[in-house]
Structures are given as C-alpha cells and as structure tokens.
Simulated scan of single mutants.
Amino acid sequence: MSILSDVTALSAVARLAGTLPTADEAAAQDARARQTSLTKPPGSLGRLEELAVFMAGWQATPRPEITRAQALVFAGNHGVCAQGVNPFPQEVTAQMVANFEAGGAAINQLCRASGAELAVIALDLDRPTADITEGPAMSEAETLAELRRGAEAVPEGAQVVILGEMGIGNSTIAAALACASFGGDAEGWIGRGTGSDVDGLARKADAVRRACARHAGVEGAALLAALGGREQAAICGAVLEARARRIPVILDGFICTAATAPLFKADPSLLDHCLVGHVSREPGHARLLEAIGKAPVLSLDMALGEGSGAALALGVLRAALECHNGMATFAEAGVAGG
C-alpha cells in the first residue's frame, strides 16, 4: 500500500509532511565524523562529502551504499499543444517511449553507464490532458490517480530513485507551474524546449500567461490539477512514496524539477530527500533552483530531459560513497595528522 492510497483530496498532500520520516541526524553526524578521519584534508572532496552525509542521513547508517538504483521515466501528452507551443506532433511522445523501450535513447545509455535500472511508464498517451489556457488540465480525481500511479512505480529495494519525463509540450507545462508557484513574467520561465523558434517562444509565453491568469489563486498540490500533466503528477507521487520509504531521489532538469514545485509550495520539507542532478540550459531552471533552495550536482549545458542529467549525477553519487566507504582513515593508514 502506497503513502497515497488513503489520500482522497489534494489538500491533504500538505498534511503528509508531518507524518513522513526525516533524515537520521545521528547517522549523518557519524558520517561527518568519518569524513574528518579519512586520509585527506577536511573538506577537500567538497560536494562529494556532502553527498555522502546526505545519503547517510536518509539511509540511517553512517556507511550508506547503493546496490539498487531505479530510474523512472514518466510520459504524458498535453492539451496545451493546441496553442502551437511545440514544433513536434504529440505522436513523438509515443515514438520516444518506444525508443526507450528498445534501448535506443540517451537515458538507456546513461543508466547503463551509471548502473541504474530503467522503467518507462506511459500515462494514457492517447488521452492528452485538457488545455490549461481554457480550464484545468485534470480533475482532482484524475490527478490523485496519477499521483498513485507514480507512487506505485517505486520498486521495493531501491536505495535511490532517479526521476525523468517525456512529453511533447511539457516544457510549457513546466513554465506554467513555475510561474504560478513563484511569480514573475511568463517570459522569464520559458525556453526553447525541443526547438521552438521566436514565434514559438511567443506562443509559449502567451499560453503560460493566459493559463496562470485563468488559474490565479490556485495553490499547493492543487496546481498539479490546474496546470500540470499526468507525468508531473506521477513524478510527485514517486517523490512522496520514496520519502515514505526513506529513499533519496535525484530529480532531473527544468521539467522534472518544476513538476515538484506544487509539493514545495504545499510544504518545502516534502523535497528534503531530493537532490537535483543538474542545472538545465533551459533559462528557467537556475531561477527555479534558487527558489527552492537546491544546488545542482552537475552543470553540463544539457537540456534533453528523459532523466539524463539525473542519471549522470548518480555516477557522482556513487563516487561519493566509494570514497566515503573505501578510503582508509589516518589511523588505518598509519598517516600522521588524523
């Protein structure tokens, strides 16, 4: 049974924050102490040390490890494409899902390189959400159903979950969620996505502006119904289920991070167990990371989606734990200065 099995209203999502586990501070402190005893100057491994301590807190052990990493890529289609916000037809979403399943996409190669299992979950691709410029993307019942589908996709035994997405038009959805959550002009949140030209960018900005105006006043998890999509809701469901099981999450780029903005607005602590794998080339992503107080693991000028940046970050996370667990202490190595 998932954490969302008994949730019957989006307004209840914020209340989950007080019931979910938090990082084990004793384990984190023990991991910090180990870092100071390893054969290196204190702090010399920089972010790698922070990542090891982060994992120790969520796994509740000073010697965390990753024996199973699971990547989940959720795919959905969006009614806002009727506004001409994307240069590609929505059939591409299903075609890319087939490519994932055949092993031919970037995420397949990156998961293999970083040691992650990959599951692709297509969410009713023949049934796009409604156009957010004309009304809510989904009903509350539909949104709750997609949250549960995301939660149910988190497998038993995973020690870290990588989240990604695929969906023609979903960079517009991401911009709308970010704009509604954190304010500002629509132009400040949009980017080229899969290759919009100047006219396409203007249509995206107009769609975001009209959608946010139509749904003004909607807050927290209810934003998923008003402005989100099936893959955005599923991502949030996976985030919540992972938290309930003390599983750290690596979010991907702009679209994946924006999907979780409604959770952050419901209660910022709901994202405490989340890392952000990279900062996307999409211009709104750095702004979004500042708003939610997350530092990316990597910055590689990527803007692909699919979970690609998160999969790369998994390699860094694995390296952090190899150093944390495998290095000798000063005492073990017989090195003076420990």
Rank of each mutant, 00 (worst) to 15 (best):
M96V: 15
R214P: 03
M1F: 10
A311D: 00
L10M: 12
M302N: 02
A186Y: 02
A31K: 00
D272Y: 06
L271H: 02
L300V: 08
V97A: 10
V249Y: 04
A259N: 10
P262I: 10
L312H: 05
A116P: 00
C81E: 04
I168Q: 06
A175M: 10
A145R: 12
L110E: 02
I66P: 00
E231R: 09
G253R: 04
A141V: 13
L263N: 05
A56H: 04
H324D: 10
V120Y: 02
F88P: 14
G200S: 12
A222L: 04
E134F: 04
G284M: 03
M1E: 04
L4Q: 03
E91W: 00
A320T: 06
V239G: 07
G104I: 08
A303G: 15
I292R: 03
A94Q: 14
L177R: 07
I132Y: 07
L321C: 11
A261P: 00
A94G: 15
P262M: 14
I250A: 10
V218L: 05
M302P: 01
A328H: 01
M96R: 13
H278K: 03
L110T: 12
E152V: 03
G326I: 05
R63A: 05
R243K: 15
R32L: 12
M166Y: 05
L300A: 15
L271G: 05
G104V: 08
E146V: 14
E134W: 00
A17W: 00
G164M: 13
R243W: 01
D185L: 14
R210N: 11
A234S: 14
E332M: 05
I132Q: 02
E152T: 14
R245H: 06
V120P: 00
V85S: 02
V316H: 01
F54H: 10
E231S: 01
L314G: 01
Q232I: 06
A178L: 09
L177F: 07
D206N: 13
G293R: 04
R246V: 13
S269L: 04
S308M: 05
A158V: 07
M138F: 13
N86A: 15
I107G: 12
G79D: 05
D185G: 14
L45E: 10
I121D: 07
G84I: 11
G195F: 05
H324T: 03
R209W: 07
K265M: 14
L51K: 05
A102T: 11
G79W: 01
N170D: 07
G309R: 01
T257C: 15
E50T: 13
L125Y: 10
R47K: 13
G253V: 11
M55F: 11
T129Q: 11
T172Y: 11
P21Y: 07
E231M: 09
V92S: 07
Q70V: 09
T93Q: 04
H278N: 06
L263C: 04
R243S: 12
G167A: 10
T194I: 15
A295K: 14
E231G: 13
H215S: 12
E65G: 15
E49R: 03
C323D: 00
I292Y: 02
L300K: 12
A286P: 00
R214L: 15
L270M: 04
A27E: 03
A331W: 01
A82F: 05
R203K: 15
A27I: 09
G169W: 01
I107K: 02
A106M: 06
A106K: 00
A113P: 00
A311L: 02
I162T: 08
S280T: 12
I190K: 02
G184D: 03
T329K: 02
A331K: 08
L304A: 08
L45H: 13
